[in-house]
Amino acid sequence: MASSGAHPEADNQQALERIAEELRSARTATVLCHVFPDADTLGSGLAVAIALKRWGVPVQVSFGEPLGLPEVFAELPHSELLVSPDAVAAEADVVVAVDSGSADRLGILADRMSGARTSIVIDHHRSNTRYGSINYVDPSADSTSMLIARLYDCLGETIDADVAHCLYAGLVTDTGSFRWCGPEAHLLAARLFGTGIDAPAITRALLDTHPFGRLAMLSAVLGEAQLVPDAADGQGLVYTVVRVQDMAGLPEDERETVVDIVRTTGEAEVAAVLKQLSPGRWSVSLRSKQSVDVAKVAKALGGGGHARSAGFTAEDDTAEHIVAAIVRELG
């Protein structure tokens, strides 16, 4: 495991250099993204795989759920490297997990980490459990794609337009179109623009393009939103529920867009969206504006994430029980 001593920047630089060495010497490789992937985990995973492919290293990229690639990500370069979870090799020389705070977030592919000569974790979640043999975890980074850009520099590899497309996809989505980020994100974006990518088109495809049926879903879901003014020591909680029937005919990734609307409620510091995956099975997204650490709430309920963006899953439970648990943890 990577050191957790008093000099995290030095520790992380050492981890980055070790990762570069391991990737350079890899004979076979697997890159794992988290379940129900977003643009940051997929863009980061594909960017790592592109470097390995350049060197002639056999590489697979995969995620545990869902079984197919969400259509919104179809334009990511080199998506042909993605394989279904049942096609992922049981063992590989090097396995890299990207943007996944714990092995549990890898779903049915979590066991591939133990089937590697070297297991690598690259992530920016503060709640990361350091479950690799080498861990490069920097919670100050605005996205995991930012860390992959650093890895490319450490490797001395060129960030061309294909890699830039993948990295920009992660960067623009994880920063909310640069609404919550530091200067490094803007500097990286400028660098990626320089490769000739069509950044506005990438942004439109990922954030501003939705099927017509989404409007009916939003009408049903947002119409059922509830405000709990006394939650979070009086700062307020707003929440809603996306049930299986609400998603009829829609791609699964449309569930993930609801929280960005709910979080704009002025009367609530915290927003929660309960997403029903199947009867009794839930994925919960938590967001806060500036004063509540929702990562603590998520961790208490079996998940993790960032201070302003976190989540957890619940099995064999009801929406009412989950909301009560969130309110209890918020105080």
Rank of each mutant, 00 (worst) to 15 (best):
D111N: 14
S119K: 00
A29D: 07
A29Y: 13
P37Q: 12
D86F: 14
G107N: 05
T30F: 02
K53W: 06
H125M: 06
F36H: 14
L76Q: 05
E91Q: 15
G43N: 06
R112T: 06
E80D: 15
G115S: 03
P66N: 11
G68V: 13
E75A: 15
G115T: 05
P66I: 06
L82W: 10
A110K: 13
V94P: 01
T30P: 01
T41K: 04
R54Y: 14
G107F: 06
C33A: 15
A103T: 05
P58T: 10
T41Q: 05
C33Q: 09
T30G: 14
A39R: 04
P37Y: 01
L32F: 10
A97Y: 02
G56T: 11
H34D: 11
V95F: 10
D93I: 08
D40N: 13
L82R: 03
I120K: 02
L106Y: 03
L46V: 12
L52C: 08
A87S: 14
A29F: 11
E80H: 14
T30H: 03
S102G: 12
E91N: 13
G101A: 13
V72A: 12
S44M: 07
E75G: 05
V83W: 02
F73W: 11
V96S: 04
E65H: 11
V48H: 06
S114C: 07
S119W: 00
P66G: 11
D93Q: 09
D99F: 08
G43A: 13
L81P: 02
D111C: 05
L82Q: 03
T30Y: 01
R54P: 01
L52P: 06
L82I: 15
L106P: 00
L106Q: 01
L106C: 08
D123P: 00
H34I: 08
S100F: 06
Q60Y: 07
A29V: 09
V83Y: 05
G45K: 02
A87K: 15
T28Y: 10
V95D: 03
I120S: 04
P85L: 10
G107K: 00
F73N: 03
D40E: 09
G64M: 03
P85V: 11
V96A: 07
E91M: 12
H124T: 03
I120P: 00
V59S: 05
A97H: 03
L42V: 12
V61D: 00
A87F: 01
F73S: 03
W55T: 08
T28S: 15
V57Y: 13
V98Y: 10
P66V: 04
W55M: 12
V121P: 00
P85N: 09
G43V: 10
P58D: 13
S62Y: 03
L69I: 15
G107L: 07
F73C: 06
G43C: 12
D38G: 13
C33K: 01
G45I: 11
P58K: 07
A39C: 12
A74V: 10
L42Y: 03
P66T: 10
L106T: 01
E91D: 13
S44F: 08
F36Y: 15
D123W: 07
V57W: 13
I50K: 08
R54L: 12
S44P: 04
L76D: 02
A90Y: 01
